[in-house]
């Protein structure tokens, strides 16, 4: 699977969980790799690239971290949108 396509799948997975469940990185790796019959490492690589460019982001609350779709405020703050 092409990297861009895999990243779209990961994004869709996160979008489906938005507002319902705080996703740990592991939840995404297991969920997407099972859904697409891929190796976790492959999903991990694609996920990391998405985080590096701000398509996804880490969030933090109550001592625990999760992966989320960034808000417009976050993207504006990082100079990714105007």
């Amino acid at each position: 699977m092409e990297m861009a396509e895999l990243q779209d799948k990961i994004f869709a997975f996160c979008e489906a969980a938005k507002g319902k469940k705080k996703l740990k990185e592991k939840d995404i790796l297991i969920g997407v790799s099972t859904e697409l019959s891929l190796e976790k490492d492959e999903v991990k690589k694609a996920l990391r690239e998405m985080i590096n460019v701000g398509r996804l982001m880490y969030s933090y609350g109550g001592g625990a971290s999760s992966v989320e779709i960034p808000s417009e405020e976050y993207l504006r703050e990082k100079g990714m949108i105007k």
Partner: peptide
């Protein structure tokens, strides 16, 4: 405390 503050690519190191 908490939230979405941080630097791009890192999930830790900054506590909002």
């Amino acid at each position: 405390h908490g939230g979405i503050v941080g630097v791009l690519g890192y999930g830790g190191g900054v506590i909002g």
